[in-house]
Amino acid sequence: MKKRLRNEHPLVIFKKSKIHGIGGFARADIQRGIRIIEYVGPKLAKAEAQAELEKQNSYIFTLDDDYDIDGSVEWNLARFINHGCQPNCEAEIDRDRIWILARRSIKAGEELTYNYSYDLDDYENRPCHCGAQGCVGYMVAERYFTRLRDRQKA
Rank of each mutant, 00 (worst) to 15 (best):
A132I: 13
I19T: 08
K46A: 08
I106P: 00
I93C: 04
K43W: 06
I81G: 03
R27P: 07
P42I: 08
S17Q: 09
D119H: 03
Y59L: 12
L44W: 07
N88D: 01
F145E: 08
K43T: 07
D29T: 02
I37K: 07
A91S: 10
G137Q: 15
D150V: 15
S72M: 02
A47D: 06
A141T: 09
R126P: 00
L63D: 06
D96E: 14
L120F: 03
T146E: 03
Q152P: 11
E52N: 11
C85D: 06
I37E: 08
Y138N: 05
E110M: 10
Y116L: 13
G84S: 09
V40F: 02
F145I: 06
E54Q: 13
A108V: 12
W75I: 15
Y144W: 13
V136Y: 13
G71S: 04
A49I: 03
Q50N: 14
T146N: 12
E52H: 08
N82R: 13
R4S: 12
G24Q: 01
N57Q: 11
S72L: 05
C130M: 10
D64F: 05
Y123H: 10
I37C: 09
L101C: 12
C89E: 00
E90V: 02
N57K: 04
Y114P: 09
Q56L: 13
I34P: 07
I69A: 13
I34G: 07
H20A: 13
Q56F: 09
E124Q: 10
L44R: 11
Y67E: 06
H83W: 03
F61D: 03
L77S: 01
I69W: 04
Q50R: 13
P127D: 01
A132V: 06
H83A: 09
